[in-house]
């Protein structure tokens, strides 16, 4: 994880329980402060936390709770596979989140639930990939070009 994470949220995510894959989910908490920078513009006179900012907090909790990573790996968010926003989040809300992790095609995927004191706020599935993982076998692309050349010839 980059040392200086930049994003649209101002708070920090605390890991309440790192969890145990296959046994119990990881749990995190973050406070959506009244002074979050996004509220000034979203919206003037009616502050409501953007859905993408909920995803941002959940992404940070995911990076903090991802199970054993290969040493030297560079894990990045590859996709928001799905996200359903169930209820609004407002200034001052405490956002709790749970993460169930599974491996998929060499990457890690989590199913996360985020909630405020009023109930479920979002259900989010994220996929992370290791950008420093070994790439495809060298020469595979050249082979296919040669095959095409042979077919054309």
């Amino acid at each position: 994880m980059p040392a200086a994470a930049c994003g649209p949220v101002d708070g920090t995510v605390e890991v309440v329980d790192p969890g145990l894959p296959g046994e119990r989910p990881a749990r995190c908490v973050a406070v959506v402060g009244v002074s979050e920078k996004v509220f000034a513009g979203h919206f003037p006179g009616f502050a409501i936390f953007p859905g993408v900012c909920v995803v941002e907090y959940v992404q940070r909790g995911a990076l903090a709770t991802m199970p054993e990573r290969e040493p030297g790996g560079r894990w990045v968010l590859a996709a928001v596979e799905s996200s359903r926003f169930l209820s609004p989040v407002y200034p001052g809300d405490e956002l709790t989140s749970e993460y169930v992790w599974s491996r998929k095609d060499g990457g890690w995927r989590c199913r996360a639930s985020a909630a405020t004191g009023r109930g479920p706020a979002a259900q989010i599935r994220l996929r992370f990939e290791n950008r420093d993982a070994p790439g495809p076998v060298a020469g595979a692309g050249e082979r296919s070009e040669q095959d095409r050349g042979a077919d054309a010839g």
Binding site: I48, P50, G51, V52, V55, A78, A79, V80, E81, S82, S83, R84, F85, P88
Partner: peptide, 9 residues
């Protein structure tokens, strides 16, 4: 309001 997202890659 954002209701949902699917397959944002």
């Amino acid at each position: 309001l954002l209701g949902g997202i699917a397959d944002a890659e």
